[in-house]
């Protein structure tokens, strides 16, 4: 029983670190290549896919990081 409880309460530290690193790298790339990124992303027309897909991609990566971060801090929904 106690092992089961431990397994349930195990905090997703590794997942948080993994998604955190990917997210941080992506943000670092974005801020160090501002010129290229803003230029490409605002060409309009079919280039509209860039900002939309980037927003989706960041919401998955950074969203997963945020979710795991809250779990690691012990902030979870009421059961």
């Amino acid at each position: 029983m106690s092992t089961q409880n431990k397994a349930i309460k195990k905090k997703p530290v590794m997942a948080m670190l993994l998604f955190g690193c990917v997210s941080l790298t992506a943000y670092f790339y974005l801020m160090t290549h501002q010129g290229l990124v803003t230029e490409t992303f605002t060409k309009g027309g079919w280039y509209a896919a860039f900002p939309i897909l980037a927003a989706f991609a960041f919401s998955f990566i950074h969203g997963a990081f945020a979710s795991n971060l809250l779990s690691v801090f012990g902030i979870e929904a009421k059961k």
Partner: peptide, 26 residues
């Protein structure tokens, strides 16, 4: 985005805070 007016830097920076906030609020 088709009009090419999205400043993706601002979008993603706001998103970095709001993705934490929205889950906390939920």
């Amino acid at each position: 985005a088709i009009s090419g007016l999205v400043d993706i830097r601002m979008t993603l920076l706001i998103l970095s805070g709001s993705l934490i906030g929205v889950q906390l609020g939920a």
